[in-house]
Design a protein around this nucleic acid. Structure first.
Lengths: 210, 210
DNA sequence: CTCAATCGAAACGGATCGTTTCGGAACTGC
DNA sequence: GCAGTTCCGAAACGATCCGTTTCGATTGAG
């Protein structure tokens, strides 16, 4: 690349370290900086949702420079995915009622409550939305988060198949059906408690008599 | 508002109408401008998806001024919703096979093909994503588009209830279940044809023997 | 003819993404 | 101990975008 050699750049850095500053710790990553960035990003996402999630604001809150952020996370989406990865999968203990329909009933109500009462619902909506724009986010959602976080739900279906309640070959499709139901309610912001709807769905998926 | 009265604004408008220009037709809307804007927006959305859908680009393509756009559509979301409204609901003729499960099988395969082979799938994904950020888009999606476009599907379930295949009270919930299945496949970009999965889902919703 | 509303061009303010320049700090290899 | 490398954060930049404002011009209504 040909570049102009003559430079007339002005001075930078005029307040000269009177405030607190997290300087470099040498020719390697500063874990404090990384932690501060992730924590700032996590808090910002929980507070203002994805619309208020900007790199500039994360840098301000973390007391970090934008180049420091972009050194480790090439794009905003990468940082977002990383922050989402750190979210606790939450204390959604899968029920063990002995029947698929009542397992689903209990689990669904707990999930909706979790989505309503923590930042997780909002954050998950943001991830799904981001996945509609970014290929990286879509791949992360489909190939990383979904398989990981659906383990418990899948186990409920697998156990039901082992008990003979449903066919084993139907499990992946019943799972998709069940996930879709929760998604459509979350994405249309209609996850107020709905015992009747949830019970109908649970019984339909389990093939139980109504 | 107090405003400075002294102005030293430079001149505008220096090429003086040598190019084609769609001037005002008086103190009222110019339907040509409106049509050009909608057409440009529609084409842009189909070509580049929602990420490339900017007001500046729409204005350029339409040969319109941004103030003209903002006079009629207060925000970008409003224009987007309006463009989406104009999308043809498409030639998805609901099947009449006489049984819910086979109706669903045929309809689902046609829907997925429609989503894959036209800009509609991409556009619908964009609307769902937009609804996660904009309250207006969410309201439009939930209260306007969904009820309207689900008429055919709802009718399939209603007729099945009339035939005694399913309980009438279950219709809204089975509908949500069915929509969710399609959404989750669309939003994770997994709408390649999947006859087995679709059949399992159709039979589960219809309560048919497997 | 005057007034009001429209038209498109252009510029603006503010925000954002992602990049680059800069002064400085600290570890690593020699 | 001393250069060289890599990191650090501040600041500015270019580009893009949203939504607003100014401006000259056009045209219908009264």
């Amino acid at each position: 690349m040909t570049r102009d050699a003559s430079r007339v750049e002005g001075p930078h850095q005029d307040h000269a370290g009177e405030g607190r500053r997290r300087a470099s710790i040498g020719a390697r990553r500063n874990p404090e900086a990384e932690a501060a960035i992730l924590e700032a990003a996590r808090g910002l996402l929980a507070e203002k949702g994805y619309s208020g999630f900007s790199i500039d604001e994360v840098a301000r809150r973390a007391g970090a420079g934008k180049p420091t952020i972009y050194r480790w996370w090439p794009t905003k989406t990468d940082l977002f995915i990383d922050v989402y990865s750190a979210e606790k999968s939450a204390a959604l203990v899968p029920p063990e009622t002995g029947a698929l329909w009542s397992d689903l009933l209990a689990y669904t109500r707990a999930l909706w409550t979790f989505w309503r009462t923590t930042p997780s619902g909002r954050t998950f909506r943001a991830l799904i939305a981001e996945a509609q724009t970014s290929e990286a986010a879509l791949a992360a959602l489909r190939d990383k988060f979904l398989p990981e976080r659906l383990k418990d739900v899948r186990a409920m279906f697998d156990e039901a198949a082992a008990r003979g309640e449903i066919r084993g070959e139907a499990v992946p499709h019943l799972l998709a059906l069940y996930i879709g139901f929760n998604w459509v309610r979350l994405l249309t912001d209609t996850i107020a408690d709905d015992p009747q709807g949830i019970e109908t769905v649970a019984r339909t998926l389990a093939g139980s008599p109504q």
